[in-house]
Simulated assay, not measured.
Amino acid sequence: MKLEANRDACISSGNCVMTSEALFDQDDDGVVVILAEDVPEAEEDHAREAVDICPASVLRLV
């Protein structure tokens, strides 16, 4: 499972970071940064939750 993010459409809500600090961070402008494109098995549920709760729908699992 891989994570992708459309950084250009990110609205900097930070919900993803609150879901998993192991997978997500934010740059100085608050835009999402993917820390682990290949999602570790232990973080798969967190990745799914982040995709589901992203208010701008910029996160995607492939």
Score class of each variant (00 low, 15 high):
7 R>H: 11
11 I>L: 09
24 F>N: 04
28 D>K: 15
23 L>M: 06
54 C>H: 02
52 D>F: 10
34 I>H: 13
58 V>P: 00
41 E>D: 14
35 L>D: 02
21 E>Q: 15
44 E>I: 13
37 E>N: 13
9 A>W: 04
62 V>W: 02
4 E>I: 10
25 D>T: 08
31 V>T: 13
50 A>H: 05
22 A>E: 10
10 C>H: 01
31 V>A: 09
22 A>K: 12
6 N>A: 07
55 P>E: 03
45 D>L: 12
19 T>W: 00
28 D>A: 15
11 I>P: 02
20 S>C: 12
2 K>N: 12
15 N>M: 11
42 A>K: 14
60 R>M: 07
60 R>W: 02
61 L>G: 06
57 S>C: 05
55 P>A: 02
45 D>A: 15
59 L>T: 01
23 L>N: 03
45 D>H: 10
56 A>D: 07
30 G>E: 06
51 V>S: 09
50 A>R: 11
46 H>L: 05
49 E>F: 11
17 V>S: 04
15 N>A: 06
6 N>M: 07
24 F>Y: 13
19 T>H: 01
20 S>N: 05
36 A>E: 14
45 D>Y: 05
26 Q>F: 05
33 V>E: 14
33 V>G: 02
17 V>E: 03
33 V>W: 07
56 A>L: 10
61 L>F: 05
2 K>S: 11
19 T>Y: 01
49 E>Y: 13
62 V>C: 01
49 E>G: 00
59 L>H: 10
58 V>R: 05
46 H>D: 13
51 V>W: 09
56 A>H: 04
17 V>A: 04
1 M>T: 12
35 L>T: 05
51 V>D: 01
5 A>D: 03
3 L>G: 03
17 V>C: 08
10 C>D: 03
27 D>R: 15
16 C>P: 07
31 V>S: 11
19 T>S: 06
25 D>E: 13
11 I>S: 10
8 D>K: 15
20 S>V: 08
32 V>T: 14
49 E>P: 01
25 D>R: 14
39 V>Q: 10
28 D>V: 11
56 A>M: 00
8 D>R: 14
20 S>L: 09
19 T>Q: 08
42 A>L: 04
12 S>A: 15
9 A>E: 12
13 S>G: 08
15 N>W: 07
52 D>Y: 11
50 A>L: 09
62 V>Q: 10
49 E>W: 10
32 V>H: 02
47 A>Q: 06
51 V>A: 11
15 N>T: 03
29 D>K: 14
22 A>D: 12
7 R>A: 08
33 V>A: 06
46 H>C: 03
42 A>N: 11
39 V>C: 08
20 S>W: 00
30 G>M: 09
48 R>G: 06
57 S>M: 07
43 E>N: 10
6 N>I: 02
45 D>I: 11
60 R>G: 04
48 R>W: 11
33 V>L: 08
6 N>V: 03
14 G>W: 10
17 V>K: 13
50 A>C: 08
10 C>V: 13
57 S>K: 14
51 V>M: 12
